[in-house]
Nucleic acid binder design. Structure first.
Lengths: 221, 221
DNA sequence: TGTTAGCGACCGACTGGTCGGTCGGTCGGT
DNA sequence: ACCGACCGACCGACCAGTCGGTCGCTAACA
């Protein structure tokens, strides 16, 4: 199968994107270690040599993919958050947005969660990602504390806790046999997190938080 | 280096344990994928062939290691929990115990957290582990709800959230450049979690929770 | 207009190295 | 003499990265 050769106007941009797309698909099922460069090549309909013309190593592809994908997510969060001015409302919207984006892009979630499967050094990569989100959350919490909306607490640990909670909820959803709708977990998650930092019950009840049926399909006990 | 041959009385039990010990050491630094069977052999001071006399596959070694280690941890938790009768107190003690055990056995924590680095199928293994602890937590929460100590909430999601929080706190501690004392995070974590399920402030303040200095060394912002 | 040199993009067979697992063999105890 | 425990060289699969090519475009030149 002869491939259409790219026009010179492409400047190689197109195929770079094509490779990234293929890499996304490939990494998405299988994680880093279980994905061979040949798999990426197949997914992107390009040769291995072609890939190495555009990228120096397999790891470089993965890193770029992670970075740009995270950028998109953070960008999305920051733009939706911009509509709110109250710091607690911002935190709420941030959490909700992450949930919604992942709900709509299960594969993207996979990318983030199977990133770890590249042992040693990728742990560091994941670390940066976690930090990024935790810091985002922490900034909202700090603001909330500063303006007296919530009592003074250790916002560093709190942001870690919030992130961990969010992370785990998404992780379980990803691994569930018959996953429900991820967004359905939001009302409960929101209430738990807001309560945890001492937001008043009145404030928590403010958004009626439609009582969906339990978001988690079944429990294996 | 000729090794001491085991006495027949051993029935091979000793060397099985020796291998498991070596595997623990080896897996502990490097995760599953980055640890070669030869590494395990070296750590256990036995030959590769010797290992395959006792275990069918590398994966079998890892699974057994995970299982028995988790057993120990769960056992420890359950025995300390037995001293308490109030379900919320039990949950508190469970969290605290996990923190303390990990604090004292950093390597054990490593084993659990680098388990994921074996892509696909190990995710499932980790899943089981998470389930085990989440279910433990859920049972305490269910009891607390049943006896009216806390309001009725979705204990399934709540247990996932609690576990996620705990998990992330430990993970950050493991990856910190200059980790502080893990137990120091307990007071804050405890307060956050208890508040999240609606335990009264009075009850939360009950244990004076000695205000340690911040448990997290520094923040990279 | 026809010819050709140069080049950027891409191809895919191949290499070097790693690693899980095997297998014929050894050895001490009974 | 036999057997269970153990040894370690070896096999084969897999895979990241390389390298000598090919192809078609464009620009320079005749």
């Amino acid at each position: 199968m002869r491939r259409q050769r790219s026009q010179p106007a492409d400047h190689g941009r197109a195929s770079r994107e094509t490779i990234l797309d293929g890499a996304f698909q490939a990494f998405t099922k299988g994680g880093y270690r279980d994905t061979a460069v040949d798999d990426i090549a197949a997914a992107a309909e390009i040769s291995k040599g072609g890939i190495y013309f555009h990228f120096p190593t397999k790891e470089a592809i993965f890193r770029e993919l992670m970075r740009t994908t995270a950028d998109k997510l953070v960008g999305k969060v920051e733009s939706t958050v911009a509509a709110e001015s109250d710091p607690i409302a911002r935190a709420e919207v941030a959490i909700r947005t992450v949930l919604e984006v992942f709900a709509g892009h299960r594969t993207m979630a996979r990318l983030f969660f199977e990133a770890g499967a590249g042992g040693r050094g990728f742990q560091a990569e994941t670390n940066v990602l976690h930090d990024r989100f935790a810091n985002l959350i922490q900034s909202y919490l700090d603001d909330a504390v500063a303006q007296g909306t919530i009592p003074a607490i250790d916002t560093r640990i709190t942001s870690v806790v919030w992130f961990g909670a969010l992370d785990e909820v998404v992780a379980r959803w990803l691994l569930a046999d018959r996953p429900g709708r991820l967004e359905d977990a939001y009302p409960t998650l929101r209430a738990l997190l807001l309560r945890s930092v001492g937001v008043t019950e009145a404030r928590i009840a403010e958004v009626p938080a439609p009582t969906f049926p339990a978001a988690f399909p079944e429990q294996h006990r």
